[in-house]
């Protein structure tokens, strides 16, 4: 194969667009410093220690603000480059691949939490029930009584929940909200492809409202779980899987809402999007569809089954 490779002189390809390779930039290293400080602060915050008189939360907050400022400046740069027409079609395809594979990595992140849920429900609870170490423990799902409780009674460190969330109230409402938001964001996408900016803004705005409503009800649900149901992060493996899965999903919905909100502001105040050039919005909408799919899995495997 390689013997067939022939390099021709440069003129042969002069009709080829030049790929935009940005000049050297201080943004990446500042991002890395911001993230490093944030995590360094977070670890001291979690264990309650301090460094040179600064407490964990102080270092964490300083890192966060710096990190956010650098990222904002980075995206601002990318948007400006795009408005100046620097990227070729080829670079735009790189952004498309980049976003696509980023979402795939997020899929794998959620996959492992669903894997844990499946492993616990299918295998390990049954094995714990057979184990003489946890005499009197029986496997059930939802797990209302932990092995700890079965052996140690009220002295147990991990106590199961008193009750669990009813899937057919708030979660059902949230399912409807989020599914609806997938449709509204799709209509917005069609609107921008047809060049109807007003319509686009309206439907994108509706999507954001639906997203915020979802988050509001999710918080309501958490308050109900903590205050009325005794369902907390610490209530055994049920509480663990429930809050970690729905919590990471909620964090992703928050991210997605912010992403869509920025696209809305770009459209309303900057008129940044064209019929055939609106990848910033498209990427955010892909992300939104992704969190929607994750929610459907959550609704089925965490709430209903």
């Amino acid at each position: 194969m390689s013997s067939e490779i022939v390099q021709e002189n440069n003129q042969a390809n002069s009709e080829h667009e030049t790929y935009y390779v940005p000049d050297s930039s201080r943004l990446p290293i500042l991002t890395a410093i911001g993230l490093g400080v944030t995590l360094f602060g977070a670890s001291h915050w979690l264990v309650g220690s301090s460094v040179w008189g600064f407490t964990g939360p102080q270092i964490f907050l300083a890192g966060c603000l710096f990190f956010a400022a650098v990222l904002a400046s980075w995206w601002n740069t990318v948007i400006k480059e795009n408005m100046a027409g620097l990227p070729s079609d080829q670079l735009k395809r790189s952004y498309v691949w980049g976003m696509g594979w980023f979402i795939f990595s997020e899929v794998m992140f959620f996959f492992i939490f669903f894997f844990v849920l499946a492993y616990v429900r299918i295998y390990s609870l049954d094995w714990l029930a057979e184990d003489p170490l946890w005499e009197g423990f029986s496997a059930e799902w939802p797990l209302m009584q932990t092995p700890d409780q079965a052996v140690n009674g009220d002295g147990a460190k991990f106590k199961g929940p008193d009750a669990i969330i009813d899937p057919w109230h708030l979660p059902l409402l949230n399912t409807i909200l989020l599914l609806a938001s997938s449709f509204t964001v799709h209509i917005a996408h069609n609107a921008i492809k047809a060049g109807k900016r007003g319509l686009f803004n309206a439907w994108l705005g509706a999507t954001i409202v639906l997203g915020i409503a979802f988050l509001f009800f999710q918080v309501e649900e958490y308050i109900e779980a903590y205050q009325d149901l005794g369902l907390t992060l610490e209530s055994g493996i049920y509480g663990t899987t429930f809050f970690m899965l729905t919590g990471f999903h909620g964090a992703h919905v928050t991210m997605g809402t912010i992403m869509l909100l920025i696209q809305l502001l770009r459209s309303v105040f900057g008129n940044h999007f064209k019929k055939d050039d609106h990848f910033g919005f498209e990427a955010a909408s892909w992300y939104w569809h992704f969190v929607d799919v994750v929610w459907v899995c959550l609704f089925i495997f965490v709430y209903i089954l």
Partner: peptide, 22 residues
Amino acid sequence: IHGGTSFFDAAGGGDPVLFQHV
């Protein structure tokens, strides 16, 4: 370690072997 969850703690219904699988 910090959140009180029991992914890898059998007392709460988790499983240390699960860590090895993950």
